[in-house]
Design a protein around this nucleic acid. Structure first.
Lengths: 193, 193
DNA sequence: TGATTTTCTTACCATAGGTCAATTTTTTGG
DNA sequence: CCAAAAAATTGACCTATGGTAAGAAAATCA
């Protein structure tokens, strides 16, 4: 079964014929490590399903510092969702941390499909519910957990991501400097938590 | 026009007959200032539309400190969305900051309605898109802005909320202590930013 | 494989924001 | 309208994390 079909049907029932109608609107995108899928200042007309590889959505602030909003690996969706939904130019970058093989779909095409395939709209609504919950939990986590607790929560929650990304990228996801992360990691090695 | 109908049709087209079918599934809830709409440890089966009043969703951590996820006033939706969507018992409280008049709908009823009224599902999907964007922006904001910047962003973004809630509640939304907020405010008075 | 670039670590000092405790101000409810 | 409770402020001190800089380690690529 197609990885996208498997992914969708894990969450929402969808006939094979319906899936094929949906799939027809996706186009493959292949990028190599280091390339940018989305650059700041452009319209964001697509979202992307990850077949293979690892990516990161991040913002560069006025001091030149990077802030990571999300990582994405196989079977995750990625885009600059702020700009995708607001229909504004991107404020974030999406970079390939590894060589990537993606499927892209245009927002307007997807919204057209919602009119004829209600189960597709349902899938994306549920996807959004899960993402929304994840971000609410992350806000709570940032509000009351220490950097060390957030780091350990991160590696427990995403062990397969931790191994594929740089520490400075994890630091920018946690909201600390690479130096602070390095200190936390050192601490942990000696006290074996 | 009913405030809920006005709110929905501002975002998604919906026939009056469809609206009435939806409205039939809402029930009024009236609470007075200080009462809890949702208490930790219970199932969260409803979400609520605010007709009148002001509420706050917050979590109490293991140190007894409060962390505010959202405020809600007229024409906003409120619940403990983490538990509502995950279908787990609540980890958050929702309290009435003022006397409140709400309309509640049960999640299972709403999902039934999605099957017969696609425009209702569409409305809630779009609602979720907007909320998702707001939370992504808040994450970015927490990652790189100082407490002072976040405070001023808050009062610029929600001037009508700022006037209706306590400073310690704003502090717990920003992720700082009431004492720190007090110091920021003092600073600002003298340097008129 | 070796040279170059990138990432990670460490040390030292700086600072935003936290903690605690006392006081003042505001709000609440009888 | 007043007493009590809640909220806000202030001051003194503290701590987690940031900033900077330099060297070590790891990754990249010609």
């Amino acid at each position: 079964m197609h990885p996208l079909q498997q992914h969708i049907t894990a969450h929402t029932s969808l006939e094979t014929l319906e899936f094929e109608r949906l799939l027809a609107h996706f186009e493959p995108v292949d990028l190599s490590k280091g390339q940018l899928l989305i650059e700041p200042g452009n319209k964001v007309e697509h979202q992307y399903f990850v077949l293979n590889g690892c990516l990161r959505t991040f913002m560069i602030d006025s001091d030149g510092k990077e802030h990571t909003l999300q990582f994405a690996i196989e079977n995750w969706w990625v885009s600059d969702y702020i700009s995708y939904y607001k229909e504004t130019v991107s404020i974030c970058s999406v970079e390939c941390i590894e060589d990537c093989s993606l499927l892209k779909i245009r927002r307007v095409d997807l919204e057209q499909l919602f009119n004829v395939l209600p189960q597709v709209e349902r899938f994306f609504r549920r996807q959004l519910e899960r993402a929304f919950v994840a971000f609410q939990l992350r806000i709570l986590s940032n509000l009351h957990k220490t950097a060390e607790e957030r780091y350990h929560l991160f590696i427990r929650s995403y062990p397969h991501i931790e191994q594929r990304v740089k520490n400075y990228q994890i630091a920018s996801y946690l909201g600390i400097t690479p130096e602070s992360l390095s200190r936390l990691r050192k601490l942990r090695l000696s006290t074996d938590h």
